[in-house]
Amino acid sequence: MTTLRDMKSGDHGRVQGFDAGAPSYRRKLLSMGLTPGAEFQVIRVAPLGDPVEVRVRGCSISLRKDEAAALLVEGLS
């Protein structure tokens, strides 16, 4: 398992859960549709890694580095 922060543009993944050390981001990510089991695609990553744009459930969402690091994901082929 890895974090969303470690993924590159064009990668596909599935949300597995949330980092236990970041409870403040959990509610925000859940409200944006990043629930366990949700599939997503990384659309683009800014040159310095902040923000990361993902498409999940038909919506594009931009996340800061800290928010992306709080999301545990599984890469899909």
Rank of each mutant, 00 (worst) to 15 (best):
V73D: 02
L30A: 06
T3C: 00
V54Q: 01
Q41N: 10
T3V: 00
Y25E: 05
V56C: 11
R26N: 09
T3F: 00
G13T: 00
L29C: 03
A38I: 05
D6A: 10
R44A: 13
F40P: 07
A22E: 06
L48G: 14
E53T: 13
A69I: 01
Q16G: 14
E39V: 04
K28I: 13
E39G: 10
H12A: 09
M7P: 06
L30T: 10
L76Q: 02
G58N: 12
E53M: 11
G10C: 08
G58K: 13
S24N: 14
A70F: 10
G58F: 13
S9I: 10
L71A: 05
G49L: 01
T35I: 13
S9Y: 12
G49H: 06
R5K: 14
P47A: 11
E74Q: 11
R64Y: 05
G33N: 03
V45I: 12
C59K: 15
E74L: 12
L30P: 11
G17P: 03
T35Y: 12
I43Y: 06
L4W: 00
G75Y: 02
S60W: 14
L34R: 01
I61E: 03
A68G: 02
L71R: 02
C59T: 15
L29A: 00
P51D: 00
D66S: 15
A38M: 13
E67F: 07
A46H: 09
Q16T: 12
R57A: 15
S24A: 14
G58C: 09
A69H: 11
M1F: 08
A68P: 01
G13V: 01
D19N: 14
V73E: 06
R26C: 07
G17A: 02
V42H: 01
P51Q: 00
S31N: 03
L30Y: 03
R44M: 08
S77W: 10
Q41M: 13
M7N: 01
I43S: 03
G33S: 05
R26S: 01
A70I: 09
S31Q: 07
L63D: 04
D50I: 06
A22G: 04
R64V: 05
F40C: 01
R27L: 10
I43H: 06
G13Q: 00
R57T: 11
L71G: 04
K65F: 04
S77N: 08
Q41E: 11
A38F: 11
F18S: 02
Q41G: 08
G13W: 02
C59E: 14
A70P: 08
D19Y: 12
P36Q: 09
R14F: 06
E53I: 09
S24F: 15
M1Y: 10
P47M: 12
H12C: 05
K28N: 09
L4G: 00
R27D: 14
R14W: 04
M32N: 08
P51W: 01
L48C: 13
A20K: 15
S77V: 06
Q41L: 13
K65P: 10
V45E: 05
S62D: 10
H12S: 13
V42K: 06
V56S: 03
S31L: 07
G13N: 00
G37W: 06
G13H: 01
E53D: 07
R64S: 12
R55K: 05
L72H: 09
G13S: 03
C59A: 15
H12R: 14
A38W: 05
A38S: 10
P51L: 02
G33Q: 02
S9N: 13
L48K: 14
A69E: 13
R64L: 02
